[in-house]
Nucleic acid binder design. Structure first.
Lengths: 192, 192
DNA sequence: AGCATAAATAATAA
DNA sequence: TTATTATTTATGCT
């Protein structure tokens, strides 16, 4: 057995560095690790993750919950970009593979199932990009549910209650109706 | 003439009806448009776009360059989320379909081919993460405390003072506001 | 080893 | 649509 042949003086090269090397041999191996295979998997992993509509953060948290060690968002990010050593990649690959397959299975059984598996809050509403406070939005939505088409005086009243400009509130109702109208028929599969 | 409806955004009053309407049937049609088909396509479009590694912005710009009218990032976003009217969706669908197929074809011929087709700069690298000096951060925070929402000229001025790129300073303020929002449960600065 | 946060991308108020 | 916010990704760092 000869020496492991360090490529650089002090740093272990990452997978992406090794793969992108000019020779780029399809069957390139490093320490008996099939780099091409890992590269392929990483690429696929990302697409499959996105197909499920999952973020790196979600994957990391879910893995931390199920598998033993902790996985940060950074760790998932680095794997996808192959910004890790072959050894680390080799270790992480089966873990991700297994988890993702399971996630896909759950997804086929229903989206609610996937969310449960991932462990996110079931109905965590996306926070609105807004100059409105969360409290204000809650109030606005409550008003909207009661009446999507408030009259002029009603709008004035709501605006005063919430301490917002009347025009701002009026536009909010316009946008709210617009969104509802456009999405109510078409969009059924949207995650909350 | 009753029911004044003083507040309109040039919208038909069918909104309130839509609110109470039950979910669309699988074969639902609106104005002769197959809604289910559009829904399916939109979902697929997103996955296919991501598989090609393209952003909404890239698609919009590329479409603007090839097809006639202009397509903004927002437009693509709205299509994917189906936050548009059935009529608009029906109009946009074939355009996207055609373009995406072409893009996929180019991609199979080689990634360089795709990038060329998309028309973006061949190798737009991510900007290197900026490190602010402690002095700069102190100064930025001082500015932020006085005014969390500097105007364009103000940003330019601050950037010049501190000798940083204007864009970098602009983004710093964005992120700073973000952090503050996340940190303080109470929304401190409510924007008018 | 991962946190903090800069940069990039997606969503949305106007 | 546009300009900006909300969210996600990527990376400098100790």
């Amino acid at each position: 057995p000869t020496a492991p042949v360090p490529i650089t003086c002090s740093e272990t090269p990452t997978v992406s560095q090794l793969v992108s090397k000019p020779p780029a041999a399809p069957g390139a191996e490093e320490d008996g690790i099939n780099l091409e295979e890992i590269r392929e998997f990483a690429k696929n992993f990302k697409i499959r993750r996105l197909s499920l509509g999952l973020t790196q953060t979600q994957v990391g948290q879910a893995l931390t919950a199920t598998a033993g060690p902790a996985y940060s968002q950074s760790a998932i990010c680095r794997f996808e970009k192959l910004d890790i050593t072959p050894k680390s990649a080799q270790k992480l690959k089966p873990v991700l593979e297994k988890w993702l397959s399971e996630a896909e299975l759950r997804n086929r059984e229903g989206q609610q199932n996937l969310l449960e598996f991932v462990g996110g809050e079931p109905s965590k509403k996306r926070k609105r990009r807004t100059s409105f406070t969360p409290q204000a939005i809650e109030a606005l939505n409550a008003h909207f549910e009661k009446n999507a088409l408030p009259t002029g005086p009603e709008i004035t009243d709501i605006a005063r209650q919430l301490n917002y400009d009347r025009e701002v509130v009026r536009v909010w109702f316009c946008n709210r109706r617009q969104t509802l109208k456009n999405t109510s028929k078409l969009n059924v599969f949207q995650l909350p």
